[in-house]
Nucleic acid binder design. Structure first.
Lengths: 331, 331
DNA sequence: TTGTACGCGTTATCAA
DNA sequence: TTGATAACGCGTACAA
């Protein structure tokens, strides 16, 4: 059978469509008897209201999109999880869209196009607001400018494009990186290798924090691995980076021969899965994904409901904790 | 300024709204000159077509939802990534919704409610079809039954509820688990511990495959760890499970004292991050996420476009590869 | 080549 | 308490 609509129910019940509409939304203005009757026949027919029509008429969707480049990093997965949860609590539905999913090496440029399409779609009535996790430098700034100018509710999360006057939620990356670095030094590091090559504001802030701390403590470090540079770093080298998966382990696997006679310490953000080997210790700066997600959702909703957004444009969430990674050794 | 609509542009250009509508979709029937003029003024006004209205009028959204419980497992992330990519290639947009995100321990039952809501929303015109990764046994069967009966395009991925006559795409879990087990035995295992406690069809198939192989080879195994059971397993124990994160490492961490004098071998699906320690070797059965995603998308689209779906109800994708996990040891 | 008029499925504002 | 009717913004036969 085809899709049941209000009209069908109305005809069966010999009532007007508007009465049916009210009854199905439990409007107490409809007489309790007819209301029940309508609801029963609706259920028996397997009626489902058409959300497109409903949202079109209502002017809002109670839907927020979380748009991010990928789910590779642990923090991304956690943000999705918490944002979805918290949005749900606020009676919004959160949808996730990936915009970097085209980067499989087939079609360059298509990814950006896809990104643009997603943002457009969101702003075209399908979502009440969006939370965007940008990734590739300022490539996307011009895409977002329009939306912001038209006051479409938008909040940046984790990273934020430079020079856009809009809400943003991120971690205290700079001071977090300083603290992480401090731990590595307390752990005995005599020098450091910095792996923060991503061209985004979060990685840059971390890089700067790390540099600042190392300089202040007078500890040598390099950002590119050269034989000469390595000599200055001493016997206990801290490798400090954003994440395990993309940076440290591949890096160590590739340059293993250089570290033969060295002791290694790793410093990373968010998590370390598995054994810390080949490091002596792994220090982890854990971002507060729950708080970040909560702030982001709150601020989009504030914009959606046109509540006067808090003065503060940029929210920096403190690092949740600094810890040494667990080891599963049996001895 | 408020939202621009076709009417606004029509008035400015002194044309009918329908002409504007055609021009903005590059309909060649509109005279090239006026088409350009219309497009220019539209752009200058920052016009965005309302997708709700467009989809309502058009009857379709070119949107597919991928609904899954969480993103904890690597396979989930890969499925999202590939599905998003492939859907995009087919000119569909893929949205991801999590339905288990409420399981933070606050409100029991709310998760199921949320799940229902998401499925309903999808079927209410917002999506042309859905791909569902179910997780908790057959809890959700009744939710899905309605949708299937009403011929709403739906494909199950990874797992599938029992007894529902609908399309499903999954891995060759049973034979995959057999092969994985074989590898563990070739690696020297004298006994095995099986950790497949999840109440879903994928884990069950794997459990059965593992059991079958072990029985055939006459190798002792346990599914619950007891002191007596442990004695029979010999000195080299294979721990075989679905994933690293949720099962093996916590299990070993908890029961470490029992394994003091044993050699361990791990057998898992999808991936192993970090060092294999405390195991001698880790064998990994890697699922073919790309193929799974592709099949799933293809089959939803087939249903959406009412093409006669292939006779085969259930697609079982072969395991991509069996490998030993990489090690990053520097010596 | 452009305009008219109706449909998409709901909600909301009247009037009855 | 219910019914008629106008939005919501756009697509599209059909007519001009």
């Amino acid at each position: 059978m085809a899709k049941i609509k209000l009209q069908d129910i109305a005809e069966i019940c010999r009532l007007d469509i508007s009465t049916v509409s009210r009854a199905l939304r439990d409007d107490p203005v409809v007489k309790s008897g007819t209301r029940k009757r309508i609801q029963k026949t609706a259920a028996s027919l397997g009626y489902r209201p058409n959300l497109l029509a409903r949202n079109l008429a209502g002017g809002r969707t109670r839907t927020i999109w979380l748009i991010l480049p990928s789910l590779d990093a642990t923090i991304d997965q956690q943000l999705v999880r918490h944002a979805s949860h918290y949005a749900n609590q606020q009676d919004y539905t959160l949808f996730v869209a990936l915009h970097d999913s085209d980067n499989f090496g087939d079609l360059v440029g298509r990814s950006c196009e896809h990104y643009r399409q997603i943002l457009e779609s969101a702003a075209q009535g399908t979502a009440d607001g969006v939370i965007v996790v940008p990734r590739r430098g300022a490539d996307d700034a011009y895409l977002l400018k329009d939306l912001i100018n038209q006051e479409f509710p938008i909040v940046f999360l984790d990273n934020h494009p430079d020079g856009l006057a809009s809400s943003a939620v991120t971690s205290e990356n700079e001071s977090g990186a300083r603290e992480l670095t401090r731990r590595c030094l307390e752990g005995g590091a005599t020098g450091a290798i910095l792996l923060f090559s991503e061209p985004n504001t979060a990685a840059q802030a971390r890089l700067e924090g790390t540099r600042a701390e190392l300089r202040q403590c007078g500890v040598p470090f390099v950002e590119q691995l050269t034989p000469e540079g390595l000599e200055n770093l001493g016997s206990c080298i801290a490798i400090i980076a954003s994440s395990q998966t993309h940076h440290i382990l591949p890096f160590v696997a590739k340059n293993g021969q250089h570290f033969k006679d060295k002791t290694l310490i790793f410093g990373v953000f968010d998590d370390w899965v598995g054994e810390p080997a080949p490091a002596k210790t792994v220090y982890v700066a854990v971002q507060d994904a729950a708080a970040m997600a909560k702030f982001a959702i709150d601020r989009v909703i504030a914009q959606i409901e046109k509540r006067p957004d808090s003065v503060q444009r940029m929210v920096r969430v403190p690092i949740l904790e600094f810890k040494e990674s667990m080891t599963y050794r049996t001895q």
